[in-house]
């Protein structure tokens, strides 16, 4: 086992309790949503059947289910109409949107985890003295730091990606059974989702996150290497104070924009590339792509600037780390 792998295993061992708790909560949420979908499907099916029995002519009955018509106008649908169209709605509104929703939720959770991890990564070992132990080992400083940065960025984003895959896998297995009757009635299938494309796009999206959020990650690690106390407050307080001062004295949002631009742009990229809204009614043999792709965002000047800024912060972290700066 190489030293780097041993360091990554160390990070895993330190983080695994938190990750296991998050994983358990996530599986619980997944299970809950599948149960909710199951109950929803059963309710729709049951209502349609009961009302069909109550009214001789179901076509005359207007019930109060919301629904889009063929021209994409919101309106009312009878249970029969609802039942006829439910597979299209299922794929787009229940399945695809829930995938995006859970993906964003996973992302936000993981980014928060990364933030708390990185801000504590070096500060904690400086404050408990274990930095002396790590630095008494024959491992170069840049490898020690790289293990921290990799665990807090690549590691956590990889977990986010894997959780996305698990979500797809679980829903792919569980949902066809839940909506079996409805899907069979319209001749449609969840396999219409372009899973291969999704896996690739989802991976590219995470690569984009890694690159565009690298300046934030390396900044947090830098603060973790130099601050004498309250690392989170120091990390957030400094840019906020600077931004407020510039706003107050120069009447400019420049710093606020600079500090938040990559976060905003990565969110815009996700929304812009989302294809789910383009499909509403789909044909039984139509392939549904969830994202257009993130390649052009990755190969951009923003990526170059992001990586350059991250490199500067990382150099600062390396220089500070070697000085063994004391905590309060």
């Amino acid at each position: 086992m190489t030293a780097f792998m041993a360091l990554i295993v160390r990070e895993w061992r330190e983080l695994r309790t938190v990750l296991m708790v998050l994983g358990a909560l996530y599986l619980l949420a997944m299970g809950g949503s599948i149960v909710a979908m199951h109950k929803g499907a059963a309710y729709v099916e049951g209502t349609a059947q009961r009302q069909a029995e109550t009214y001789d002519d179901a076509e005359e009955y207007d019930d109060d289910f919301d629904f889009f018509d063929d021209d994409d106008h919101w309106g009312w649908a009878s249970p029969w109409e609802l039942r006829e169209a439910i597979s299209a709605e299922l794929i787009l509104f229940v399945y695809a949107h829930s995938m995006r929703g859970s993906a964003v939720l996973i992302n936000i959770t993981m980014l928060l985890l990364a933030m708390f991890y990185l801000i504590d990564a070096l500060y904690k070992e400086r404050s408990d003295g274990s930095t002396y132990f790590y630095r008494s080992l024959p491992v170069p400083d840049h490898i020690l730091l790289l293990s921290k940065l990799a665990a807090g960025t690549v590691g956590i984003l990889l977990l986010s990606y894997l959780m996305g895959l698990v979500s797809v896998g679980i829903s792919r297995i569980a949902l066809p059974g839940v909506f079996k009757e409805i899907l069979a009635a319209s001749g449609q299938s969840l396999s219409q989702i372009a899973y291969g494309d999704f896996l690739w796009d989802w991976l590219m999206y995470h690569l984009l996150l890694l690159i565009w959020l690298a300046p934030y990650a390396s900044y947090l690690l830098l603060v973790s290497a130099v601050t004498r106390g309250r690392p989170l407050l120091a990390a957030l307080g400094l840019p906020i104070v600077l931004a407020v001062l510039v706003r107050y004295f120069l009447q400019s949002d420049l710093l606020i924009n600079v500090f938040t631009t990559n976060f905003i742009e990565v969110g815009k990229a996700l929304a812009h590339e989302w294809e789910g809204n383009r499909y509403f009614f789909i044909e039984p043999d139509e392939s549904v792509e969830l994202f257009r792709g993130f390649g052009r965002y990755i190969w951009s000047s923003r990526s170059l600037v992001s990586l350059s800024v991250a490199a500067v912060f990382s150099y600062g972290t390396w220089a500070a780390y070697r000085r063994n700066m004391a905590t309060s």
């Binding site: 030293a3 330190e14 070992e125 274990s130 930095t131 491992v139």
Partner: peptide, 18 residues
Amino acid sequence: VLPPWMKVAHVIDFMQGV
């Protein structure tokens, strides 16, 4: 200076790795 959160067995594993 040993990392307080590590188990003894993990410290030994870690040393073997690095």
